[in-house]
C-alpha cells in the first residue's frame, strides 16, 4: 500500500463534504441548500462529524481483522478531520443560527440537554486533537493511548446528541448508534476486561 498516494487521496476525500457544501452555498452545485440553508449546513457538518468519528474508530478493528497494520497510518488524519467537522458544526450553529448571540448560546448550553451533550463530545476531542502530534505521542508514552480512549465517550455523546435532536424519525440516528455499538463491542471483546469480567463463566 503506497501511503504517498493514499494519504493525499484520503485527505481530499475527507475535505470533499466541505467543498461540496461551499459549492452548494455558492449555487454552483445542485441541490441547493433549500429554504433554510443554515439548518442544512449545520446538519451536513454534524452528520459528517459523526461519520468521520466512526470512520476513525473503524481503523483499529479493520487493521486487526484484515491484518493490515499499515491502515494505522490513516487514523490520525481521520481523527483530525472528525475533530475539524466537530468544530465546524457548532461554529455554524453559533454563527448562522444564533448569529453570535452569546446569551442564547449560554441558555442553550445549560438548558438544552442535547446541545450540552454535543458540546461535551467536542470538549472531549480537544485534548485529543492537541496531542495528536508525534511529539506528544512520544512525550506521553503509554499514557497517550489511555488519553486517546476519550474518543469512546466522545462518540457515545455524539450519537446521543444526534438521537436526541430528532423529532420522531429515529431510524438514522439509531443506525449510527448500532455502528458505534458494534465498534465498541468488538473492542470490548478483544480487551482483557472481558476476561476479567467473565472469568470462570
Amino acid at each position: 500500500m503506497n501511503t504517498r498516494v493514499y494519504k493525499p487521496l484520503l485527505f481530499a476525500a475527507c475535505l470533499a463534504p466541505v467543498i461540496w457544501l461551499v459549492l452548494r452555498i455558492a449555487g454552483v452545485l445542485q441541490p441547493g441548500l433549500g429554504a433554510n440553508p443554515a439548518e442544512e449546513i449545520q446538519d451536513e457538518l454534524g452528520v459528517w462529524a459523526l461519520r468521520l468519528l466512526l470512520a476513525t474508530l473503524c481503523v483499529t478493528p479493520a487493521a486487526r481483522l484484515l491484518k493490515k497494520p499499515r491502515l494505522y497510518r490513516f487514523r490520525r488524519m481521520l481523527g483530525l478531520y472528525a475533530f475539524f467537522y466537530c468544530m465546524l458544526h457548532p461554529l455554524a450553529y453559533f454563527l448562522l443560527d444564533l448569529q453570535l448571540d452569546f446569551a442564547h448560546l449560554g441558555e442553550d448550553l445549560l438548558a438544552r440537554t442535547f446541545i450540552t451533550v454535543g458540546m461535551g463530545a467536542v470538549l472531549l476531542l480537544i485534548p485529543l486533537a492537541i496531542t495528536s502530534t508525534r511529539g506528544w505521542q512520544r512525550r506521553l508514552g503509554r499514557r497517550w493511548n489511555r488519553l486517546h480512549r476519550l474518543i469512546y465517550p466522545a462518540a457515545v455523546l455524539a450519537c446521543w446528541h444526534f438521537y436526541w435532536q430528532v423529532k420522531a424519525d429515529t431510524a438514522e440516528p439509531l443506525l449510527y448508534c448500532a455502528i458505534l455499538a458494534l465498534l465498541l463491542g468488538i473492542r470490548f471483546w478483544w480487551s482483557p476486561l472481558r476476561g476479567r469480567l467473565f472469568r470462570g463463566g
Binding site: L33, A35, P37, A38, D97, L98, Q99, H104
Partner: peptide
C-alpha cells in the same frame, strides 16, 4: 425566538 425563513442573504443569515 424563531428563524424567519427566506430572510437575510438567501436565508443563510435568516433573521432570528
Amino acid at each position: 425566538t424563531e428563524r424567519r425563513i427566506g430572510s437575510g442573504f438567501s436565508g443563510l443569515f435568516a433573521r432570528r
